[in-house]
Nucleic acid binder design. Sequence first.
RNA 1: GGGCGAUUAGCUCAGCGGUAGAGCAUCUCGUUUACACCGAGAGGGUCGGGGGUUCGAUCCCCUCAUCGCCCA
Length: 889
Amino acid sequence: MLDRTYRPADVESATYRQWEESGAFACHPDSPAPPYCIMMPPPNVTGILHMGHALTFTLQDILIRYHRMQGRDTLWQPGTDHAGIATQMVVERQLEQEQSSRLKLGRTAFIARVWKWKEESGGAIVRQLRSLGASPDWRRERFTMDEGLSAAVRKVFVALHKVGLIYRDKRLVNWDPKLHTAISDLEVESREVRGSLWYIRYPVEGEAGAFITVATTRPETMLGDTAVAVHPEDERYRHLVGRAAVLPLVGRRIPILADDYADPTAGSGAVKVTPAHDFNDFEIGRRHGLPMINIFDRDARLNDAVPEPYRGLDRFEARKRIVADLEAQGLVEKIEPHTLTVPHGDRSGVVIEPWLTDQWYVDAKALAQAAIEAVETGRTTFVPKSWENTFFEWMRNIQPWCVSRQLWWGHQIPAWYGPDGTVFVEETEAAAQAAAASHYGKPTALERDPDVLDTWFSSALWPFSTLGWPEPTLELQRYYPTDVLVTGFDIIFFWVARMMMLGCKFMGDVPFRTVYIHALVRDERGQKMSKAKGNIIDPLALIERYGADALRFTLAALAAQGRDIKLAESRVEGYRGFITKLWNAARFAEMNGSMPVKGFDPAACRLTLNRWIVGSLAETGARVAAALDAYKFNEAAGAIYHFTWGTFCDWFIEFAKPVFARADAAAAAETRAVTAWALGEIVHLLHPIAPFVTEELWRHFTAGKDGLLIAASWPSYPPRLVDRAAMAEMDWVVELISAIRSARVEMNVPPASELAAYIDAADPMIWAHVQTHKESILRLARLAALEKMSATDHAWKTVARSAIQVNIEGAIVLLNLADTGMDLAKERARLAKESAGVESEIDKIARKLGNEQFLAKAKPEVVAEQRERLAEAEAALARLRTALQRIGA
RNA sequence: GGGCGAUUAGCUCAGCGGUAGAGCAUCUCGUUUACACCGAGAGGGUCGGGGGUUCGAUCCCCUCAUCGCCCA
């Protein structure tokens, strides 16, 4: 016997274990079934499950379970990402607490320490994924630093280097002075900061008392200035172009030159040029062949290239000192408040310093071409399509990708340097040494590049490296290109674009046919969840409180395309109610001996009631499948929700009750069988979204005889199951009961009082319907009796004065209040209000139908529909008028 | 500055050419043996403003306002 309420905690972990042990998650590369593959975006090994993960993995799991049930050989490839900077930071923080440090340990010991951390505490998220019910093929779990994946990284690096698509270059990079590494453009966050604009006078050489005033937001970098630039058209400064200024505090002679970059309308119109510490100035420096003077060390402290008093100062300290010294010399003309955007490292949070270093770059521009074409030609499509624009925008303006990082944790770059600096890029040290021996003519000692690769470099290979590339494995052949990538828009650039580029390059085909971009989860006020704001909703806490299914259902129900998801806990609570509702419907079935019947054929049902629920279910099944096929998770969830609660529970079960109690054994048996069948179908249709409760119910009803639901087939329903007549009939009965209920409440009829009712219907079919469903109608509308009586009967006229007259399609029903008394005035008002409503509707439709343009141009079925509506409304109005007349209005 | 998106019931959101919907909240009533994590019923919206296209606009187009996000 099922418990009174479903307790998720009691079944979830055991059910999960059963799924996993049954092998249901496994892919079968040798199977004849068509494959279906999703690459799980590998979460950071340091990560813990947050709401964004819960959403993305729920949606992926829904797709996987759905396609698995459809008979596809599914591979959901799981794994984790080594997350270079994040992981290194975690372990470094630990060392700090032990009064140790990465440097004290040395590289080899440090890396060993990180591996140890990874084995012990890494991958918590992988365990958490299980409580969400995710069903990836865990046997195939990969880690981006696994030997196989690392080999793929080396091979790709070397191959790209050989063809010049990876190269070493000295240019400005985004330098993180806290983490001591270069980072890519994407890892830089622009933040608006309130600062100042300093106007500084630079003396003009050879003209005592003459100055050119430059405006700058970073006065401290003046020590590295190598020019002053003005706009070529700027009359104010034309006479100074070609001459020189004397850099204050330093005394260096720097040219005044004309360059379009200087904006005459901004600041003073003249700008200082610091090519080694500003990306725009770097370009000016290149155009004019200016020297580049690096004035910072790796901590962004002033180095020995600056005058002695400033050496060793931190950049912010230096700013104060330099401004003070310039003021002392009367060289600060003015200081204006100024809002500017300042680059910050997304990991460290410190201000990024443009710094001149040697780094490895990927020629992203060249690689982007094939990826752009793939999307243009539709070999990969985005859902929703509008994200393609974002993708194109980024890809068409892509910059060289700086892939080297000055970290220890990651894939060390396979480059070795000879004594003279010659670089040998090879997959192994032995190969590098061989290359060096042939280059130098003798064995030569080499030193390996200490840097590691950007974490996203290995992630970019994920769709094929996890399948065994470069080996020509069966899996690679079978599952690549994958079917769909599911992810948030925030990593289109970081990851999607790069997988596209490297997939096209090395596999000769796109990594996925479809990219489904889902919304970001925000809190109920629409704010991004963050620790700082304290508005984080922990998915694991929700699972504990409401069950994984309630959380999954909520996320699916809210996952409308192209919108942020504002998650309120009340939604999860509400959908837990749905899970419980289903549970109780199953209890009802159980209590009434409704168990699955072998060989039951839903098409063979005789009772209208049963034909109706069968057809209704078939339509729901089609809707759910169509929604999932179109990635409309909210529609799938909505369809199953409304059917289960609004149709099956609210009406079908109520109608079934009198049938079960009836003497007609055949009818009862058929209804029992249909009830069990429908429940079975519901758990199938709901399983991808709410796998735990559905599996539990399935187990309960089949006693395990039919195997696990996770491995069951997705139901398909032949169109002949949909019986329009049965559906219309039941719709009418529902309308009848609803109308009576509504009128009773409106007229303050005590709920317990059972009224005698009379129905007058012109169409004999209606009376037939009433007779068929009489028991249900009496019960649900709380009537003592329902008899046929014509409005022309004398009795009708008498009763009408003490009765509520309920108007429904094709009929009018009298609810006799003789015993309880009748407020005629109130009844008149009620009928009058209803006729007013109908009149205005008639008016609206009549006007429409009176419009020749409408008749001429609207689709015929629309016109027909309006005619029908008008006819019905007119009939309703006639009934209401007669009803009013009868009570003397 | 460039781009994208939003503005629909008190709140959070669906719908996106032809009868305005859901969840939560509110109000009234109810414990009729599946379910109070419930049931019945009700109230509540000139679908941001203005213009246009159309027989017809919440839906398409333009414009304004407000608010987000991304990129510079």
